[in-house]
């Protein structure tokens, strides 16, 4: 507590010479000046939350880089590995086929992205832009499907997969979520916002439904399509319950199932588990870092319209 007070008091004094410049620069989005003490408190809080949200990832990374001779249980804890090594990463691939699992996850995720983008765009277009008897019924079907909780139907889904002979296959992992009702409704909303006049003009020009879809509608909803793609990728890469139920053969595991297996079998080897989790999480953090504006858009849209 005292340190916080000290710093709030000290900060403006320390920045003495630059004070005038700061004052004019640091304004909020309404052009009002932010008081220096408020700024310091804000940054202190931000750093504290940062430590809480990102700290555990950093600790895991640090653990994964500590060699076999280094004490990972030391009190007080050591945050930086004294001799960073990739030894644990090669060990984890010797223990479980982690790269195969990652490849399986990648296959499932890419398939999910492709099928969701195509299927959701097509169906969304059908319920947003085409006129026919049964359109409202069709929309209702997708809304009902969106409200069905996946956790409640996994057993029946598994029975369905078994009767199709697709249990314990990657195709079986992909199929149930390969065209999400939620994504269809997201695409529908995007298509509904396009002006009707453009469609009318294209009809006058003789464009058929497919041409209007591919040349006019689809290029106008790229943003929503990107959101669908990203959330399909993330949802499938991170999925746990369904692959856990449908996959039984350890050679077909996805990364999340493989990690859970690694933890269950080698729970005491913290360095090994840490290396495995880092392998699983790095691709998504990279994806997120590159495409974050779509992530944030997707959350907003999904929340308002879901």
């Amino acid at each position: 507590m005292t340190t916080v007070d000290d710093r709030t008091a000290a900060a403006p004094r320390r920045k003495g010479p630059a004070r005038g410049a700061r004052r004019s620069r640091l304004t909020d989005e309404h052009g009002r000046r932010v008081a220096p003490w408020e700024l310091v408190v804000r940054y202190l809080l931000l750093v504290a939350v940062l430590a809480l949200t990102v700290g555990p990832f950093v600790w895991q990374l640090s653990t994964s880089l500590k060699g076999p001779t280094e004490d990972i249980f030391s009190t007080p804890p050591k945050f930086l590995p004294s001799h960073p090594t990739l030894h644990n990463y090669s060990r984890v691939s010797g223990t479980i086929p982690v790269w195969n699992y990652a490849f399986n996850s990648l296959k499932v995720a890419v398939a999910n992205v492709v099928t969701n983008c195509l299927g959701a765009a097509l169906a969304g277009y059908a319920i947003a832009r085409l006129r026919y008897r049964g359109r409202r019924l069709l929309t209702l079907v997708f809304i009902v499907a969106m409200l069905v909780p996946v956790e409640g139907i996994v057993i029946a889904q598994f029975q369905t997969m078994r009767s199709l002979g697709l249990n314990n296959t990657l195709l079986g992992v992909v199929l149930p979520g390969c065209v999400g009702a939620m994504n269809i409704l997201l695409m529908r909303n995007a298509f509904l916002h396009l002006p009707q006049e453009v469609d009318e003009a294209a009809i006058v020009d003789g464009a058929n439904a497919w041409q209007r879809f591919t040349r006019i509608a689809l290029p106008s909803v790229k943003g929503t399509l990107a959101v669908v793609a990203i959330f399909a990728f993330m949802g499938s890469w991170d999925d746990f319950l369904w692959p856990l139920i449908v996959l039984s053969d350890s050679s077909k595991f996805t990364l999340t199932i493989g990690l859970n297996y690694l933890h269950g079998t080698f729970a005491d080897d913290q360095r090994l588990v840490a290396a495995g989790t880092i392998i699983a999480v790095v691709p998504l953090i990279v994806l997120f870092a590159c495409l974050q504006r779509f992530f944030f858009r997707g959350v907003g849209e999904g929340a308002v319209k879901g």
């Binding site: 099928t115 959701a120 069709l138 069905v148 029946a156 369905t160 065209v179 009702a181 879809f213």
Partner: peptide
Amino acid sequence: FAAPGLVIVCAFVLYP
């Protein structure tokens, strides 16, 4: 247009 989505949703969500 709706067929792929409809088939998947019916077979793997509504039927289960």
